[in-house]
Simulated assay, not measured.
Amino acid sequence: MSEEKDYELESAEVTWRLYKTQAQMNFLLEMFGRDLAAEKGYTWLESEGIEAIRYYLMQKHNWLPSQVNSMSLEDLSFAVEQEKKPWTLKKKYRGLID
């Protein structure tokens, strides 16, 4: 007897993996932003990584707040791709991502 595939379950599993991966990428972007804030001396933004990235991009490219605020997390990640290349997540946070 052949087993019938549960396409609803399979679809839900794919969706779960997609959202989990997106959440992990967003977390890494946030943590990169926190390290960027510390490196650049943005002491008022050290616990707000995404805002630190937005501020960095405004300073680097002379972009307006409205421009960086309209960017998605994927766009922000792409905009700092070169800066992220040498960066690694601190060891104490690595266990948070499975």
Rank of each mutant, 00 (worst) to 15 (best):
M1Y: 07
S2E: 12
S2R: 10
S2N: 11
E3G: 05
E4P: 02
E4T: 12
K5G: 04
K5H: 09
K5D: 08
Y7N: 10
Y7R: 08
L9K: 11
L9E: 14
L9I: 08
L9M: 10
L9F: 07
E10Y: 02
E10K: 12
E10H: 02
A12P: 01
E13K: 14
E13G: 03
V14H: 11
V14F: 09
T15P: 00
T15L: 13
W16A: 13
R17F: 04
K20A: 06
K20S: 09
T21V: 06
T21D: 10
Q22G: 00
Q22D: 08
Q24E: 13
Q24R: 10
M25D: 12
N26T: 11
N26W: 01
F27Q: 02
F27C: 02
L28K: 15
L29E: 00
L29T: 06
E30H: 12
E30R: 11
M31A: 07
M31G: 00
F32Y: 07
G33R: 00
G33A: 04
R34H: 01
R34L: 03
R34N: 05
D35H: 02
D35Q: 05
L36K: 02
A37I: 01
A38H: 06
E39V: 05
E39M: 09
E39C: 04
K40Q: 15
G41R: 03
G41T: 02
Y42T: 03
Y42E: 05
T43F: 10
T43P: 00
T43N: 09
W44S: 11
W44Q: 11
W44H: 11
W44L: 08
L45C: 00
L45N: 02
E46R: 14
S47M: 07
E48C: 06
E48F: 13
G49N: 06
G49Q: 03
I50K: 10
I50S: 06
A52F: 00
R54N: 05
Y55N: 12
L57F: 03
M58Y: 00
K60D: 02
H61F: 08
N62H: 10
N62F: 03
N62I: 00
L64Q: 10
L64N: 08
L64A: 12
P65R: 09
P65G: 01
S66T: 08
S66P: 00
S66G: 10
Q67C: 05
Q67W: 03
Q67D: 07
Q67I: 10
Q67H: 09
V68E: 04
S70H: 12
S70D: 13
S72W: 01
S72N: 07
S72E: 06
L73I: 13
L73A: 04
E74F: 12
E74K: 15
E74M: 13
E74L: 09
S77A: 15
S77M: 14
F78E: 15
A79H: 12
A79M: 15
E81L: 12
Q82C: 14
Q82A: 15
E83P: 03
E83Y: 08
K85H: 09
K85I: 15
K85T: 13
W87K: 05
W87Q: 05
W87A: 07
T88W: 04
T88I: 11
L89P: 03
L89A: 05
K90M: 09
K91I: 14
K92I: 10
K92Y: 07
K92W: 06
Y93K: 12
Y93M: 11
Y93F: 15
R94K: 11
R94T: 15
G95C: 02
G95V: 05
G95Q: 07
G95I: 05
G95N: 09
I97D: 07
D98C: 08
